[in-house]
Design a protein around this nucleic acid. Structure first.
Lengths: 355, 355
DNA sequence: ATGAAAGCGCTAACAA
DNA sequence: TTGTTAGCGCTTTCAT
């Protein structure tokens, strides 16, 4: 055993700001008068260390403000304690709450979140995903554009969870938008609407397929006509671009791919002098903040983005711990929020709700 | 020189998904028939490698899908190629665009962004900041609550840039909210308002101080009365909570700390039957999406969050490259957006604009 | 319960 | 221009 109390030259700050030489496990070992492996054990397997020794080591670590170097630890354990989170567009109001929840859930297990969005060419996206895959222990994919095959390939080499996407063999967290969409359609059709328009988003989006199928089934069951238009960009301008065509369909009720599109439609309708809900009823998807403040307030299908972010990370961490994923992906219910943008069709002011 | 073409057993995938043994620099060296240091040079100092050799190495790397292990590289270079981004609340619409821009700018230099928000106890925030500081090359702080002294301390050991905050000796990117606020006040006062209310946010926020000072100076110059209330939480509910008191001040025009507060005020005014802008004019700060859709549309001071995110990372990266920071922090101009929520004071419908 | 030693994958002198 | 060597900070056998 060496003499206690010796610490190496590292313990002083160099002149340059931002270049403090870090205190290492060796400094702690010297100060505590033990071997570095004992210090290591104190942190990664405390029960293997004598209580008194552990106390001394811990004290020394605190005194020196020692924190294990994650890169060094990761080099040998193969774990970075970081997760990658890739989303389609951080600035889309759909994502922030998901990101926030994911980060919070990861932090609970001492994991960090490396974030990126794929607002670029498909090629860039793929490179991004592949390079991220090497740096993290697992990945949450909340994006729509990366090719299924690429995702499956990456999923082979890194734990990966997708959100709102169904890929054979890839664990997923899904928002059951069909529940909310069915409720919306029931209400709208119950009011007497006989011609519905669906303004679609990116055709590769799982949500788009879900909405399409749900609306279609509901219309068929009710004997109503359905006109689907699109795909449009899932943005405000996408909605604005769709407005004229949406009106031209002659539909008296419109379901939009998401709230941004619905907001764009609302603006477009306003410009064209089309009254909502007098002439056309309008329903969006996501329940972003702005929907509560439009006039009329926008009916929408609330998406559980917070819960999804949390569950996705939770699932990913469980996979990393070696647990086997459930057979079925968790389906998180959504909810139809009825607001002022929905009313009876024109010329039928007394339209009745369905039971 | 060893025989070319040999690759180690690592080149196969283990049965377990997500546990592919990574291909290392050694595999590439073997396949290319060179020493590992030559492979290393090919990536980190290509000009030191013979062209033909470089080609062979690159080919081998591509064939093996080799990517340098960042942890290993970081262990020796002391660089993680990651930046930390800490914000007050990811879900606050003020931040996503900043985050997105920061991430994009970092990616251009091959840096990753580790994100976190500090929506918690001050103690948690500090631990978060301190532990993050050890894992990244530099930090962007977009939060308001962490104590100045802690920030300065961390700034001693890691490069750090703050956004919208002024701390002695800490490089900053600032949004010149005073420009927009002055324009707003000029307009409002020009309409004839003689009593202004300022609904303040967290008193530790630099923006709050800026707004307070600007509004105060403008009122003094115009001989108008100013009533400041607060602090309120910078959220929707903060605004709702402030509504009654804001009305009670008797002011005919209200400037809110941010748009969320303004939105809350708008809702509160609506509930109380106070007409905007008939009885009270209202101005927010940030230009979040929802402000364009309220009725009346909310006048606001547009904040250059995208540019701020980009500049903050740009500044940080330049500091990391050893460049000396400018003496003055960059001030990014803001802009007053006049919308329907501002009008002449009651009983003075013809109020004139100032020049 | 603790120490000794090997080595994770890589870079950076130094030598050749 | 390339190979050799040492070692970044840590964990993990294996001895003791």
């Amino acid at each position: 055993m060496r003499a206690a109390g010796t610490i190496n030259a590292n313990n002083w700050t160099s002149a340059e700001k931002g270049t403090t030489v870090a205190v290492t496990i060796r400094d702690v070992a010297n100060l505590a008068g033990v071997h570095i492996s004992t210090v290591s054990r104190t942190f990664s397997a405390p029960h293997l260390v004598n209580e008194e020794t552990r106390r001394r080591v811990t004290e020394a670590a605190v005194a020196l403000r020692y924190q294990p170097n994650r890169a060094a630890r990761g080099l040998i354990t193969g774990r970075t304690y970081q997760l990658g989170l890739i989303v389609a567009d951080i600035a889309n109001p759909f994502f922030p709450l998901l990101i926030k929840a994911a980060q919070a859930e990861a932090a609970r297990s001492d994991y960090g979140i490396l974030i990126a969005d794929t607002d670029e060419s498909t090629e860039v996206e793929e490179r991004l995903l592949r390079s991220l895959a090497r740096q993290v222990d697992g990945i949450v994919l909340g994006s729509v554009r990366i090719d299924d095959n690429v995702v499956m390939e990456v999923a082979e080499e890194r734990r990966l969870v997708v959100v709102n996407r169904a890929i054979e063999g890839v664990p997923a967290v899904l928002m059951d938008v069909a529940v909310g969409a069915r409720a919306a359609m029931e209400h709208v059709l119950g009011l007497g609407h006989e011609h519905i328009a669906y303004v679609g988003g990116p055709s590769s989006a799982w949500i788009d397929a879900q909405l399409r199928a749900t609306v279609s089934a509901a219309c068929r069951a009710a004997g109503a006509r359905l006109t689907a238009i699109g795909p449009y960009s899932p943005t405000l301008s996408g909605g604005e671009a769709a407005a004229a065509r949406a009106v031209a369909t002659g539909a008296t009720a419109v379901l939009a791919f998401n709230d941004l599109v619905a907001l764009g439609l609302l603006a477009g309708f306003g410009d064209a002098g089309v009254d909502v809900p007098g002439q056309v009823s309008l329903v969006g998807v996501d329940d972003i903040l702005a929907t509560a403040f439009t006039s009329p307030p926008l009916s929408t299908i609330a998406m559980p983005t917070r819960l999804a972010g949390q569950l996705a990370v939770d699932l990913l961490l469980r996979l990393l711990r070696g647990e086997t994923p459930e057979e079925r992906s968790p389906m998180i219910p959504t909810e139809f929020l009825l607001r002022g943008s929905v009313g009876p069709p024109p010329g039928r002011p007394g339209g009745r709700r369905s039971p």
